[in-house]
Amino acid sequence: MSSSAAAAAPAAPILEVANLTQTYATAAGPLTVLDDVSFTVPAGGTLAIVGPSGSGKTTLLGLCAGLDRAHSGGVRIAGEALEKLDEDGRARVRNAEVGFVFQNFQLIPTLTALENVLVPLELRGERGRESDALALLERVGLAARADHYPVQLSGGEQQRVALARAFINDPKLLFCDEPTGNLDAANARTVTELIFGLNRERGTTLVLVTHDPELAARCDRTLRLRGGRMVDET
């Protein structure tokens, strides 16, 4: 937990995870990939989820972001229980409260950099925010590439566009899935600085899944998973 946040009044949790269990049916019988995981993240906090491959990190991130329904247990984002919402309801919550950064960037290949950044706003019907999007692209150093399509950008540049997109709707929560996993060292450093810099500037809560111990170390807390169970929290 952030010491500065703790020194002031304890912030209300923006993300609450309670007894989260996820089971998939397989030919060999039910397979539990997440087993009774509970934690909270206060507003403005940063949390790293680490663990070996197959430990359930991505499943946990997906459930936290409302990308899937849990077998049991619950997730609340800004007090709203995701399990009570249908897919469209969860989409609304994501659009209003959540930003995403993916390992493989996930830009829409058919949209320019600027258009990619604008998508979350356009989905909620907001108009005339091109200047905000350009300002964010400027912030990530890509204002000059606003009209370029993803295929015309390098991996590092694509991830910076993805960052601008993640922050355009001023999310309360930013989920990052191995954000530097596909980048070289120099680009990884740039992107990391941008993530934490923007996080500070905008007071966003950060939840990131990573294999990178250095990246995890920059977070307030680290949650360690193994075989679907929480084994450690520091």
């Binding site: 469209d88 989409a91 609304r92 994501r94 659009n95 995403f100 996930q106 829409i108 998508v119 989905l123």
Partner: peptide, 10 residues
């Protein structure tokens, strides 16, 4: 991706 960014089915 659009779903993830909050697009509704409609």
């Amino acid at each position: 991706l659009l779903r993830t960014l909050g697009a509704t089915g409609r």
